[in-house]
Write a protein that binds this DNA or RNA. Structure first.
Lengths: 158, 158
DNA sequence: TTAGGTGCAAATCATTTGCAATCTC
DNA sequence: GAGATTGCAAATGATTTGCACCTAA
């Protein structure tokens, strides 16, 4: 009843990283990694938790937070603070990159802008901080929400 | 015993904005505005609260949050989410601009980079969001903390 | 076997809210 | 005097922690 095999290449990679760093591979953890590796929606811990409860009714939020924290510590998950009240996680592209969040429905999308590196270089030249990192995100009203003013697209991608 | 007059031009401006929008000018509120208008350290609500308690021992955090929220609603204060666990407020430069935060001591400084507008233009061209805004901040180890590895500069600017 | 993992519940921490007393206008 | 504001305390919501039980290696 328990899948013992990662469902995707990225999931397999994550499982390998976890095990290489001395962590155990439990069924819940495998399910969590499989979920994250196939989820492009930048889910929050709460969202991961409620999706996982379908397969593992006894799983707890603490386990979800623990595992996410492991992945972040390994550099395999990127925590996103997009000012929407909770931390979201990007496991598919763990290197920092810009995101866009819709202020109405909360949907988060990736974005690639070549202006970011130039700006980081400017900042490094302007201040003498060590290990300076850039955090860039954008917020606005997504096309779907703009089209449906009365019915925000809650949950469709958040 | 209660100063009835704003202590600076910016404080006077803020008082005017608050009154023009139908809010009352209470002693606590005047003291809060005076404090914010003379504070370049991007303080958090908690920091504003503890500094204000010296003058108004009975003031409550709720009052601080209420007044900050008013100023934000009026566009006279910029809330900053710099991933350090609390919201900081910039009352001196309420238009969005980049900030640098030290990961060790928490000190926040302003930064001006002409690359930001270019990047925002790129983002607006890349996605069709309405009212797209950029949020940019940097984090690293400030020169002072880098110089004193054993004794982080807690509280010096946070 | 055994150290790490799990799940529950309780603890934290920032922020918000309910409400009666208070104060500005 | 009317209605906004205050301050306390309790509520909220995200995240963390303590701890006894469990389980992968």
């Amino acid at each position: 009843m328990i899948p013992i095999h990662p469902q995707s290449a990225r999931a397999e990679q994550l499982v390998g990283r976890l095990q290489a760093s001395g962590h155990r591979l439990t069924p819940q953890r495998l399910a969590l990694v499989d979920l994250l590796a196939s989820d492009t929606s930048h889910p929050s811990a709460e969202q991961v938790y409620s999706r996982l409860k379908a397969q593992y009714p006894t799983i707890s939020l603490a386990t979800v937070y623990n595992t996410l924290e492991m992945l972040v510590a390994l550099g395999e998950a990127l925590p996103l603070d997009l000012n929407d009240g909770c931390t979201r996680y990007d496991v598919l592209r763990p290197a920092a990159h810009p995101h866009v969040i819709c202020r109405r429905c909360g949907r988060v999308a990736d974005l690639d802008l070549d202006g970011v590196d130039a700006m980081l270089d400017q900042a490094r030249a302007a201040v003498q901080y060590e290990d300076l990192q850039a955090r860039v995100h954008f917020d606005g009203i997504c096309p779907t929400c703009a089209r449906n003013p009365t019915e925000p697209e809650e949950g469709s991608g958040a």
